[in-house]
Simulated assay, not measured.
Amino acid sequence: MFLPSTYFPTHEENRFANEGDVGRAREFFLKHRPRNLEFLLRKRYEWMNAYIQPGQRVVEFGAGSGLSKEFIRHDNFRLTDVEPRPWVDDVADAMDPPQADGSIDVAVFSHMIHHLPNPVRFFEGIQRKLAPGGLILIQELNTCFLLRLALRAMRHEGWSYDVDVFDPDVVANDPRDPWSANCAIPQLLFRDEAEFRRRLPGLTIERNELNECFVFLVSGGVVVQAKTVELPEFALKAIDAADRLLVGLLPSVFAMGRSIVLRKAANA
């Protein structure tokens, strides 16, 4: 199958039902706690606990269904989203955060970077809101070959490698549509660490780990739910082990996820 450098399906082409219905997704997860999906979400969030200290001010932007609070254990963890929802603590646009400069110790972003209209302006803004030495914890997509095949098959979200994500004037997504998605953004940002440091010198990359493949596919999805067979824990762990092997051997084919830790300079 030919995979172009740019591919954006329309909302009408999407083969998933309930696109963007985070309320339904939240209700479904909390009611049923499907094993495959819970296993995936544990992997996406629980690693972040090691980077969060007691007493720190922790904010998630673009919280969506708000399921991060099921896995990130912290008393001062606030959820924000651009749309008001019952489980959201503060309504905030990640491109123009209302928090005071230097007021956040840890900023959390899960699968929202690929929705940004302008990535470099976003990071410059979040950097100002972080306290000196503050952290940005990111869990994101990585557009490996298999993920692009899946996106093309389901026509759920698209990608474009034909944008300079470090250009402050670039339009990487439709700024009028919070669900506009360019899934190539995380890969374009983090595949060349030296380039990232050169373009955003106030942030240091402390972790940049590729992960996830079939454990993502068998989950059924977070916001949209595809039909899947619920697997026992031992089978999910076996799939996870196979994923680690495959991602290590052929990341360009199998790595569907990426975990990133960025630190603001202590003297900034």
Rank of each mutant, 00 (worst) to 15 (best):
P201Q: 03
I113D: 10
F145Q: 03
N182Q: 08
V108I: 15
V88A: 02
N76V: 02
D240M: 07
L130Q: 08
H115P: 02
M112F: 11
I185E: 06
W47D: 00
R26N: 10
N211K: 11
F123T: 01
G64I: 12
G220N: 10
R42K: 15
P232S: 02
M48I: 13
P54F: 13
P98T: 03
V163P: 11
E212A: 10
R128Y: 09
V218M: 04
K264R: 15
T204Y: 00
P117D: 07
A150Y: 15
A150H: 14
E124C: 00
M154V: 14
R78Y: 14
R263Q: 14
L149F: 14
L147T: 05
N118E: 04
L203M: 05
L188F: 06
S103Y: 13
I239N: 01
I138N: 05
S110V: 15
R85N: 00
A153G: 02
D93W: 01
A181M: 01
F8Y: 14
R244H: 13
F109H: 13
I205F: 05
P9M: 03
G66A: 08
M95G: 07
A92G: 03
P98H: 04
P201T: 06
R128G: 07
Q225R: 14
A255Q: 03
D164S: 09
R263H: 12
W47M: 07
E193F: 05
Y45I: 13
A241I: 02
G125D: 03
L236D: 08
A255Y: 06
I72F: 10
L141P: 00
A63G: 09
